[in-house]
Design a protein around this nucleic acid. Structure first.
Lengths: 173, 173
DNA sequence: CCCGACTGTTCCGTTTACGGAACGTAAGCG
DNA sequence: CGCTTACGTTCCGTAAACGGAACAGTCGGG
């Protein structure tokens, strides 16, 4: 586990909220040196420190700490996906994945059950995905949706690895 | 946050697995004194220590850090949202929320920073949301997207509560 | 009985995370 | 231009978390 990762996330969350390092340190009741070191990953923060900071940011620990292990991960030729959450509703079940697509390879996935749809939101890179005969393209920040009861493909456009979230919707039969 | 709670959970998890304190300490690469103090709540463990111990137990941090209910960031009258994950990319950070919208109320939320976009995928119910002057509508399985640097609204259409996932995208400055 | 191997706790010297103060820097204002 | 205010980083003495060793207690075998 990389403390630098935690640091970057804290900094990102702080800046999203428009808080300065000084004010967050004051609100959380920790020293500025502590917070600075935490964000830089040059310190090994204490549970108490982490708690104080995350409480001020209104963020659960989960959001800060990359999942350690035991997460179901699916590996394909180009795609690796880790299951984050499963939402069960009355008429459908949703599976939320964190997805990464390696560049230079095209992955072909078989058809799912009838009515299954996929929603992809691209975080970084450019993704071409969708039905094998008519794939769609989306850049970072973009969103794709298709009905995946036909064979479909995933591919990164260009040299950059694609990061995205994948939401699978399985209608109740 | 009570360190004693964390300690009791670690001890419980360790004993469930039939591990002795000594062996867990050795496996995790921490001192026995450290682990003993951690389980008793008489220490304020370091991120590194927690990581080492939980990794050996095969347990995500979440399981340790009491907050079964977490903290729903109650946006207000109609919407309750809980932060599930934060994704940090090079040009943007993403916050993924689980969202529920109560029927019969319309919620108005203030504008976010420039460039922030919201992606909503509806799981159940019918959602009307988006810029206050031009809201969009989506049924279960549908998807909405808008730029949220203007005031925006959330409302459930009909009597059914809306369940959805909300993805907030904050571009890097 | 002892003995060895094991349990978990306590002691202790070293390492280091802590917060306050001092620092360099940048932006706003007369 | 100063002067002020706020920013984030670095310095530093103190407090405490760290691992190793020594400790008492318990079990099972020769």
């Amino acid at each position: 586990m990389d403390p630098a990762v935690v640091g970057r996330r804290v900094r990102a969350l702080r800046e999203e909220r428009g808080l300065s390092l000084s004010t967050l340190a004051r609100l959380a009741g920790v020293g500025k040196a502590t917070l600075s070191g935490l964000e830089h990953g040059t310190r090994n923060p204490t549970l108490e420190t982490l708690w104080a900071v995350t409480a001020q940011l209104g963020v659960p620990f989960t959001a800060l700490l990359a999942e350690p292990t035991a997460e179901p991960t699916v590996h394909g030729t180009a795609v690796t996906a880790t299951l984050l959450e499963v939402f069960t509703e009355t008429d459908a079940t949703y599976e939320l994945y964190r997805m990464r697509v390696a560049p230079g390879v095209v992955q072909l996935s078989p058809a799912h059950a009838p009515g299954v749809t996929e929603h992809v939101t691209v975080f970084a890179g450019v993704l071409r995905a969708g039905p094998a005969d008519a794939p769609l393209t989306a850049p970072a920040g973009g969103h794709l949706r298709w009905v995946s009861d036909v064979p479909h493909t995933y591919a990164a456009v260009g040299d950059e690895e694609v990061a995205a979230s994948l939401l699978l919707r399985y209608p109740r039969r």
